[in-house]
């Protein structure tokens, strides 16, 4: 067991190292001189040369890469050009809406997907199964910004139940802020529910055919108990996996949804960073998000080891 954990740990570190390198390459591929970009249009060539030296842009790529990694190891993500603050701080200031949005979306997605997935597996081939399976494909085909716009139009503009955009002003209470997240979370949750529902259905189908479920049934156990207790328990691991990975991937959805709803989260930060050519922010966001994904993946793998003794590497 310890050897397995150690191996996974080494692999994770290797993946992280690759993530860091990929991000470095992407940002360095970008055309244009970051120094000229930072100084703006009125800079003299001398200013630019000085700043290049100060930023270490005049040294070789390998040296730059070394410095960049060294900075990262000390937790330094660089300095935002437009916002005039460290990238880490800028990201931290934007973390709350994205965190809550992700959390709520998962609730919404699971609230829809788990019952639908379980029931459609249980009634495999029924009209319910066919309708929900088709609906899931349909939902997965709707562009998420489109759904966001429609919900905003109906519930915020027409019915006036929510503010169409923003996250409350300064001093807005937590309740006010969360109220702003309802529509975006529903929009995002619906879109993500399709994948989770498919997974739930597939995992339940796997389990429902297993011997011990048949045994439980043969012992005269109630159907609801068979499904919820025995089958669900065993189907839970793959389902949790997909939920965990969906959570990490939700940042993709959050980018679009936060932009539609004007939420000051990490997603809209990265979009405005692209539009403002604020490369350090793009770089920092990529690193943090990918890092989180790798970590979640690792934790899930470890959970597998603990929960399911059949898993061996």
């Amino acid at each position: 067991m310890a050897r397995v954990i150690l191996r996974r740990l080494v692999e994770m570190v290797a993946v992280m190292a690759l993530v860091v390198t990929i991000v470095f390459v992407i940002v360095r591929v970008a055309p244009g001189d970051p120094a000229a970009m930072m100084l703006g249009p009125d800079a003299t060539p001398q200013d630019i040369t000085d700043l290049r030296a100060r930023l270490g842009l005049d040294s070789s790529l390998l040296v730059q890469y070394g410095r960049y990694v060294a900075g990262l190891l000390q937790g330094d993500l660089g300095q935002s050009i437009f916002l005039a603050r460290p990238v880490g701080q800028a990201l931290w200031e934007r973390a709350e809406p994205t965190f809550f949005l992700t959390l709520f979306s998962i609730f919404v997605a699971c609230g829809i997907a788990l019952p639908v997935g379980i029931l459609s597996a249980y009634w495999r081939g029924s009209v319910f199964d066919q309708v929900t399976t088709t609906t899931a494909v349909f939902v997965a085909s709707i562009p998420s910004f489109w759904l966001g716009l429609v919900l905003m139009q109906v519930f915020a503009v027409k019915l006036g139940w929510f503010d169409p955009s923003g996250y409350g002003g300064p001093g807005a209470s937590l309740a006010e802020r969360l109220h702003h997240l309802v529509l975006p979370a529903v929009a995002l949750g619906i879109v993500s529910s399709a994948l989770i529902a498919r997974f739930t259905r597939a995992s339940m189908l796997d389990v429902l055919g297993d011997d011990y479920v048949r045994t439980a049934r043969a012992k005269g156990m109630g159907e609801a108990r068979v499904v919820l207790k025995h089958a669900m328990k065993n189907a839970l691991i793959p389902i949790l996996t997909v939920i965990g990975l969906t959570a990490a991937l939700l940042i993709s959805g959050a980018i679009v949804t936060e932009t539609v709803y004007g939420l000051p989260g990490v997603g809209s930060l990265v979009v405005s960073a692209v539009l403002r050519r604020d490369y350090p922010v793009i770089q920092g966001t990529l690193l943090i998000v990918a890092g989180l994904y790798v970590l979640i993946n690792f934790v899930i793998d470890m959970l597998y080891l603990v929960v399911d003794p059949r898993v061996r590497y």
């Binding site: 905003m152 139009q153 503009v157 006036g160 503010d163 169409p164 955009s165 405005s272």
Partner: peptide, 20 residues
């Protein structure tokens, strides 16, 4: 007085219509 940036024109319209 708080100045709130709402870069998207449609979002500003929606904010105006909703009385935000």
């Amino acid at each position: 007085i708080r100045f709130v940036p709402v870069p998207d024109a449609n979002t500003r319209v929606e904010g105006a219509v909703a009385g935000q």
